[in-house]
Design a protein around this nucleic acid. Structure first.
Lengths: 342, 342
DNA sequence: CTGTTAGCGCGTTCAA
DNA sequence: TTGAACGCGCTAACAG
């Protein structure tokens, strides 16, 4: 060794654990500096069985919902001294399951958002005791999870549209098989029934393009709807554009409500009424919980995120430009999240 | 061992290397299945000194530019059997440098986008021979890099605005210290000089909010500009909203050009004229190059991405709704990228 | 307080 | 073809 010390002393100095004399400590740091030595975190992980890394399994990275979520997780991860490893674009359960398996020995915990992964896949996916937090829409009694109150949000959306005088309210749903989508649709159906109104559902795919398609079809109908509740903001924005291209006015002819409150929702004209989920904040919570679980804290709670109705101009005749003030609003309270950088 | 074989045989079966009898091979696979055995990738990495992981160092995850970029990288990574580990929110060189250091032994290569990191920091950051590809705006003679032709793009923007009859063209710049921002501003200044026009620059921060602020200031001027070239789309959109709130019409009163062609650019009304960078595609290329470098292929090339002027309604009186067709367009050619999922 | 030693879980020599 | 031993770089337990 450059500093005439053993590897153990070096380890002690670098990890900060164990007793070291100030003199040797200085010698070690000096040598580290001279040799440009950087510890090999892979080897450290093998020795400590701690990787300080959390894996995130996503269906896809497209759309602002997921990028916001990852941003929230990443900021929290940095604060906790953790790294984030992302894995997306899993089109089926097998792929997602393989992705989970390949994470073994690489992560201390997992956050799973892939709706393809049922409880069975999760159990078979990882042999050891890798903590898993699921956020794929299905409430899980046994496992740590975060779910959005999709049903309640959808009911609030319909009730709002009814309150502003709409009656022919159509729902553009998310894809079948997606639990979030199905819960939102169920809430719509129930609330419409409660209001004594007939239901109409067009299936979308949570994408802007599918919302656009649905909007064009609705605009071409003999009896057009006077309101649309879309399963998410992405589709709502697509539908809004379709309506505008077809010469329909929003909200005068068709009121529009989305779901999620992605950043884009407050930027489109008219501003989009939606059910706000504090996305980045939810990501932060998820990461902090899984980190605690990695510290062998038991956690089988199912946290429910309740979306909040944010009324903007798309469903409100009295607020033509509502939402502009949102530009300077910071949703997440963490100081480091303030402002919006490139 | 469950299958009465040595660890070596198991290794041979699982890695596919080395000679194995069909009989033992079957026994091993059977035991693997029964035991729910999953190889420990961390240990494997230590042994092979291959992590199959690429690290991405970002200044921040905010905004569509970076999420698109990561998406392109992630898709390519999966295709190559690689994982992606992201690390963002490094506000200064020290933090970013620390982030790089903590990646040692964790990744096979690095893609660095932090503009804070000069060549010096990069060199001192990683001791060993971890391949690094830089994309932080500065052309690097020695190192593998991908740079955008910011100067050329800015010149094209100004020439376009001049061609459609604008004269009082103001630039909203990105933050000082950001190399991309500075090159775009330089291109603006040069092109304006070539056209014999006076320059005005307002400094922004690449954020929507800063573009909004700049827009409000410009709208309040005694002599308002008849065109604005913003350093990126984010700021252009912010300025567009500010103009609309101030009662200015785009493009009739003020034409607007952005930079990047983020997905939002074709969605705002009017559609935003911009300099298109195929963001996801650029991310894909970056990942593939760094993976090749990890396979000890030497690469010190500096690839230049030339942005393409996309004219939409924000600078064109004859195309009030230009950009709607973009909804169904797929920028990246990879099949798995088609459509736009939640 | 410090140095020596034994694993962490794998891939990879070598000898059998 | 297979199995036993070694080493990847580090930390944790022990002994000095």
């Amino acid at each position: 060794m450059r500093a005439d010390v053993s590897v153990a002393s070096v380890s002690r100095v670098l990890t900060g654990a164990g007793p070291v004399t100030e003199a040797t400590r200085r010698r070690v740091l000096e040598a580290v500096d001279a040799l440009q030595y950087v510890p090999h975190s892979g080897a450290r992980s093998l020795s400590t069985s701690k990787t300080n890394t959390i894996g995130v399994i996503l269906p896809d990275l497209y759309g602002e919902y997921f990028s916001e979520l990852i941003r929230g997780m990443d900021v929290a991860a940095r604060a906790q001294g953790y790294h984030l490893i992302v894995s997306s674009s899993h089109d089926d359960a097998d792929e997602a399951s393989a992705a989970i398996r390949s994470m073994r020995g690489r992560v201390d915990g997992l956050i799973v958002l892939s709706p393809h992964l049922g409880a069975a896949n999760l159990a078979s996916g990882l042999a050891g005791r890798t903590p898993i937090l699921v956020m794929n829409g299905g409430a899980d009694e046994e496992r740590a999870s975060i779910v959005v109150d999709n049903h309640g949000g959808a009911v609030a959306a319909v009730e709002h549209l009814v309150a502003v005088g709409r009656r022919r309210i159509v729902h553009i749903s998310g894809p079948t098989g997606n639990l979030d989508a199905e819960a939102r649709m169920a809430g719509y159906v129930e609330a419409m029934a409660a209001a004594g109104l007939p239901t109409t559902v067009i299936e979308g795919a949570f994408t802007k393009a599918s919302g656009h398609d649905a909007g064009l079809r609705l605009a071409g109908l003999a009896v057009q709807p006077d309101a649309v509740f879309a399963g998410n903001d992405n589709m709502a924005v697509g539908a809004m554009l379709a309506f505008q291209e077809a010469g329909l006015r929003v909200p005068e002819d068709v009121a529009l409500v989305g779901f999620d409150d992605i950043p884009l929702a407050s930027l489109v004209r008219p501003g989009l009424t939606t059910l706000k989920i504090n996305i980045a904040e939810t990501g932060r919570k998820a990461l902090e919980r899984v980190v605690r679980m990695a510290g062998s804290e038991v956690d089988t709670a199912c946290e429910v995120v309740r979306p909040e109705l944010v009324v903007r101009a798309s469903s409100n005749l009295e607020r033509p430009y509502g939402g502009a003030a949102d530009l300077n609003r910071t949703d997440v309270q963490t100081p480091s999240l303030e402002g919006e950088k490139l």
